[in-house]
Amino acid sequence: MADKHCDGYLRFTTRNNVEFMVDSADKVQALVDDCNAHGMMPVGGTGAGVTNIVHTQGWVHCHSAATDASGLVKSMMDELMDYFTTKRLPSKLRLAVACCVNMCGAVHCSDIALVAVHTKVPTIAHDNFKNMCELPTVIASCPTRAISPDPAKKSVKINDAKCMYCGNCFTVCPPISIKDPERDGIAIVVGGKVGSLRSAPKFSKLVIPYISNDPPRWPKVVAAVKHIVEVYASHARKHERVGEWIERIGWERFFKLTDINFTFQSIDDFTFMRDTLRTASTFKW
């Protein structure tokens, strides 16, 4: 395509789209027509719509993966295709997928993002521990200090009540195992952005804590994302990003409009608790 229309030049964007550049407006239509005729080169992703989904490695290539990223992306984009080829949303909508809480792909600042989560305390193959792991590193790896030495077993033990399944111990010590086919799942976070237009950059916040892993097409996950996109599309004001819309109407209103069940998981009990609890009696019913 680049050889035929662009003297062989092309580039990739920060969100992994291909860009073909031409040096005159007359050459655009032929290029677009050719892309469309190709069948596997949808043209879009600009302006107030959905662009390509930034995602991570998944089962294709990472040891940490609690789900597959490419499969989720393909399943979502098949459903959201119209928003890729048109500019009908109030503002741009950035989607992302991370296949574990390491979040290689900047999921933490996207309009809507999926994060694959583990939900069970890791198990430890104690016999291998002393050969494969460094005790201080493993203890230090745990953000909630759930890990302590187990001298009798020449290994470590995990305090179940403190573990929030981040998998960091597993990353530094192979005999620790955290994957579980029936318990690994997907959480959905919304309302983040990276640009500073109008309001400061924002983190995405947790609204749906868990949906079971359901390959190859994760229908419930896809439906949830599409639902949030549609509620946003019909309620936000022009130019408002998802996070700006929600901050204007309030999170209590967001949960009502989307009819998403509010759960304990959405109340921060980790490092951001102080900043995120409500300190005024002025909220909406």
């Binding site: 998944g58 089962w59 294709v60 290539h61 990472c62 040891h63 940490s64 993966a65 597959d68 499969g71 990353t171 192979p174 994957k179 579980d180 086919p181 029936e182 690994d184 892993n213 390959p215 190859p216």
Partner: peptide, 16 residues
Amino acid sequence: HLEKCFTTKVGYWKHG
């Protein structure tokens, strides 16, 4: 290998 991951819902890559 990927088909196997999809079928069993778990990955098989080892630590690098």
